[in-house]
């Protein structure tokens, strides 16, 4: 029971971290050569970490919480985009991490590209217009942020693991066969 409480507290912490990331992202000035309204998706780092430590369902829960936050603060369309982008990219990253031995940059870029493509698709269905005009910009953006996500993950994993040990998450895991 105590373990379960700790786990929920940990997920809450991660969700808060994800929201902080999206919030910080919104504060960045729009880059001149990129389409306005495109989001970097840095909170992918958090959902990715959650997927591995507490499981895919809690990771998706975090993506949903993030979507609701976007819905409340930035409106319906931003909420829908964040929700689709968040859930799909979390799933894709989890699959790449779980089923392949791909490098971390591939995990990050895969997630970021999914995130951006989901945004584009949402835009396409909302306006039924040539939203794909933005595709090349969004893909380049995806590669850049994906690399950033991968790098941050590589650097931040050891300290994050230390934190998670305090929440008793470590005990839920087993030995991996990957070594």
């Amino acid at each position: 029971m105590k373990l379960e409480t700790r786990r929920i507290a940990f997920i809450g912490l991660l969700a808060a971290l994800a929201i902080v990331f999206s919030f910080l992202e919104g504060l960045l000035p729009p880059l001149p050569f990129l389409p306005h309204g495109a989001k970097l998706g840095l909170s992918n780092i958090v959902t990715m970490f959650a997927a591995g430590t507490t499981g895919i369902f809690s990771a998706i829960a975090i993506a949903v919480i993030k979507g609701i936050f976007a819905f409340l603060t930035r409106g319906v369309t931003a909420g829908i985009m964040s929700l689709f982008g968040g859930i799909l990219s979390t799933l894709v990253m989890w699959i790449i991490l779980k089923k392949t031995k791909a490098s971390l940059s591939v995990v990050g870029v895969g997630g970021a590209l999914t995130h951006n493509l989901a945004q584009l698709t949402t835009a396409f269905f909302l306006t039924r217009a040539a939203a794909f005009y933005y595709a090349p910009f969004m893909l380049i953006l995806g590669v850049i942020t994906g690399l950033l996500t991968g790098a941050v993950l590589k650097i931040s994993l050891p300290p994050l693991m230390k934190v998670s040990k305090h929440f008793g998450i470590e005990k839920a895991g087993g030995k991996t066969k990957h070594e």
Partner: peptide, 17 residues
């Protein structure tokens, strides 16, 4: 939930050629 991100990730390279 058997595998931690850390364990899945720590042995991986950041990037390959």
């Amino acid at each position: 939930m058997s595998k931690f991100t850390y364990e899945l990730a720590r042995e991986r390279k950041f990037i390959t050629k």
